[in-house]
């Protein structure tokens, strides 16, 4: 398999999981840069060009609430998970756990 194909599959696998991770992280309020720092500190290096648009998309779907703030002399947009986001997160987590379980079962039954 070519490197490009592998990279495409890796990105595809990550895409869904990233939304889950970002929603989880945004149970606490963050602005874009601080969210990226937090994820990096937790072990997930993610490009700005991927993270920031993802956050916007989640917000446009109503899963995040946002507000502009001028605290500390800097204009920043803060995000936090909305009530709808919480519901979606719960459902996604359940799906994630099911997939994990299935993955283990399939792996064990085919080894």
């Amino acid at each position: 398999m070519s490197e490009d194909r592998l990279e495409a599959m890796r990105l595809e696998l990550r895409r869904g999981s990233l939304a889950l991770i970002v929603l989880t992280a945004l149970r606490q309020e963050h602005y874009g840069y601080s969210l990226r720092q937090k994820l990096q500190a937790d072990g997930l290096a993610i490009e700005e060009g991927t993270l920031y648009p993802l956050v916007r998309r989640l917000e446009s779907h109503g899963l995040l609430d946002s507000r502009w703030s001028d605290e500390q002399g800097r204009r920043r947009r803060y995000y936090r998970m909305s009530a709808d986001g919480q519901k979606v997160l719960n459902a996604l987590k359940q799906e994630w756990q099911t997939l994990n379980k299935v993955m283990h079962t399939v792996q064990e039954s085919s080894s």
């Binding site: 840069y33 800097r74 947009r77």
Partner: peptide
């Protein structure tokens, strides 16, 4: 709106 946010994010990155 997107442009303003991008501006602020990039400025943050650069300052850091």
């Amino acid at each position: 709106d997107v442009a303003e946010e991008l501006q602020s994010l990039l400025e943050e990155e650069v300052l850091e």
